[in-house]
């Protein structure tokens, strides 16, 4: 079991990802945008962060950059959960410090397979 911070403004996506990861026996903490995630990250550590890109208040790329600035998150895998398949977006995310990405649409098996790459 690992601790995962899941950041997405879409309730349906959060529910789905959360449910899937729970089924796989992982422990999930949810945040609805970058700001909330960052607040949570101030006082918690995680084995993995999964974040959406497009969110109100703070997007996933900014969040990634911010998290990398925290001691506890320097080496934590951060996966970008997104439909953005265009190359510039991915590079932007990577430059901010993202580990990799999970492309939407994905099914639960694909999600778990991707996560297993980093844990």
């Amino acid at each position: 079991m690992i601790n995962i911070l899941l950041v997405d403004d879409s309730v349906s996506m959060r529910e789905m990802v959360s449910f899937t990861l729970n089924q796989a026996g992982h422990n999930i903490t949810e945040a609805e945008d970058g700001v909330q995630a960052l607040e949570i990250a101030q006082s918690n550590t995680f084995d993995l962060v999964i974040t959406d890109i497009n969110m109100p208040r703070m997007d996933g790329i900014t969040l990634t950059a911010q998290l990398r600035g925290l001691d506890d998150f320097t080496f934590t895998p951060i996966l970008i959960l997104t439909t953005e398949t265009s190359e510039p977006r991915k590079i932007e995310a990577k430059q901010a410090g993202a580990t990799g990405w999970i492309e939407k649409p994905f099914d639960p098996d694909h999600l778990l397979a991707t996560i297993n790459k980093v844990i």
Binding site: S10, S12, M16, N54, T83, P105
Partner: peptide, 17 residues
């Protein structure tokens, strides 16, 4: 950006579900 984000979010969830 707000409109884009809303559309983007619908797109992502729609295909996932």
């Amino acid at each position: 950006n707000t409109i884009f984000r809303a559309a983007h979010s619908i797109k992502g969830s729609a295909s996932t579900f």
